[in-house]
Computed example of a mutant assay.
Amino acid sequence: MTSIDDLSAGASVRARTDLPADPSGAPATTDEGLRPRGVFGKLPRYAAGKPPVVVEGLESFKLSSNENPLPPLPAVLEAIASETSINRYPDPMTTALRTELAGYLGVPATDIVTGAGSLGALNQILATFAGQNDFGAPDEVVYAWRSFEAYPISVGLAGAAGVQVPVRADGTHDLDAMAAAITERTRVVMLCTPNNPTGPILTHSEVLEFLAKVPTDVVVVIDEAYQEFVRRPDAVNGIGLYRDFENVIVLRTFSKAHGLAGLRVGYSVSQQTLTQHLRVGAVPFAVSQVAEHAAVTSLRHVGEVEARVQSIVDERTRVVAGLRALGWTIPEAEGNFVWLALGEHTQDFAARAAEHALSVRAFGSEGVRVSIGEEEANSRFLALCGEYTHRPAAR
């Protein structure tokens, strides 16, 4: 008879844990061990914004995750506290939220599909429209780069191949190059406006011109996670476009303007020719009843939300003006962040910021994204930039 000890010993042979760990901290396995899909070895790892280090005598500020520095509205906090039915599954259709959003956006509730943040909604789109085609070859997804760093991860996990089109020197999408990158294998194109992490928006006229070049069987996703912070009057508004284009899907979120990042509430808006398929691929119960109640309450107090957003926009205006007064060249900033194209000095600047109890988001040797935070944090950031000598210049 085989003993439990014998079984345990056999298991240790098949999946050894004394091998060197990979960079993620997981133990390595032998060739005979359990392994993930091959795509996992090709995917970049998502790097969340780090918390600030503690510096004696200074209050620490996190400017690395594009979070709203203000807490949810008092009414929202009260609504969360009153939610007691978490022993029950949430409404899988998020009917209350979709109904509230329909009135707010002026769209049919049937055109809205919710998800766990806009990223969750995006993953539902990719799972539905991009992966491996009937011949086993990967579909293609075209997007600008650098853009939201989760894009290549989500595309790869869906089984599709990402086609990255470099942004221009000013951080804007090169829409002509993106249109030229579309092939017969392209299933989805993603537009990020304002572009995270560089900051500029896409205008209504240039997106209209771009859509005229895109085949009607290619889905175009307009990612508007930061739409509420945009102030340029000629900026594209996806809700104003999707009604005229059957292949357009708009992504939005409650994480940024509404300050509900920790509750994960996002949604997509598209015509029913697309939503009928998206609902099949939607993750069941992705939005909890707590999150739905919070989002509905926040929408019902949207005037207060807009006032808070304007206070952040005012701080953004101050930071941008301060940087330019110091001689820094930065791209247009229409989100709740600024982009510093510091190149080889990226990591050094991030380290200097840490010494000032500020966490910022460094991207390799490309640049640093700095979220607009509390007034004191923004002032300290400007002071750091004033004494930093390797500032980006016009190209």
Rank of each mutant, 00 (worst) to 15 (best):
V214N: 00
V220Q: 11
V188W: 02
E149P: 09
I222H: 07
V218P: 11
R168V: 06
A177V: 02
R187F: 14
Q164C: 06
I222N: 04
T198W: 04
G162I: 05
R168T: 15
G159T: 07
G199E: 13
E224A: 08
K213Q: 15
F210R: 07
R168A: 12
P194K: 03
A169S: 13
R187T: 15
L191T: 05
I222V: 15
T198Y: 08
V218W: 08
D223E: 14
V189P: 14
V207C: 03
A150D: 11
A212H: 11
V221F: 10
H204R: 13
A177E: 11
T193E: 06
A225R: 15
V165D: 05
L211T: 06
K213F: 06
S147R: 09
V207P: 01
C192R: 02
V220K: 10
V218Q: 13
R168L: 14
A158K: 11
D174S: 10
F210V: 11
V218Y: 09
V214R: 03
T198G: 05
L175F: 01
G156I: 07
V219T: 15
I182C: 13
D176I: 05
Y151P: 08
L211S: 02
V165C: 00
T198E: 10
L202C: 11
V214W: 08
T172L: 01
V155Y: 04
G159N: 03
T186P: 12
A160L: 12
D170C: 03
V167I: 14
G171T: 03
I201R: 13
A179Y: 08
V221N: 06
H173K: 03
A181S: 14
G159E: 08
S147Y: 09
A181H: 12
A179W: 04
T203I: 06
L191M: 05
D170N: 11
D170W: 02
I222T: 02
G162Q: 09
Q164A: 15
R168M: 07
T186N: 07
D223Y: 15
A180Y: 00
R168W: 06
A161C: 12
D217G: 08
T186C: 05
L208W: 04
N196E: 13
E184V: 14
D223H: 11
T172S: 13
R168N: 13
L191G: 01
V165E: 02
V221D: 01
E149A: 10
E184W: 09
C192D: 15
V167N: 06
S154A: 14
V214Y: 04
F148L: 03
V188A: 05
P215K: 00
A160D: 09
G199N: 01
E149L: 10
Y151H: 05
S205K: 13
V188K: 07
T183Q: 04
I222S: 07
L211Y: 02
T216Y: 00
L175P: 03
L175M: 03
A212V: 13
A150G: 09
A180P: 01
A212S: 12
D174P: 01
A180I: 00
A169W: 07
V163C: 02
A180W: 00
E149D: 15
T172Q: 00
G199C: 01
V220H: 13
T183M: 01
A150K: 04
A150C: 11
G156C: 00
V163I: 00
I201C: 12
T186L: 10
S147C: 14
V220F: 05
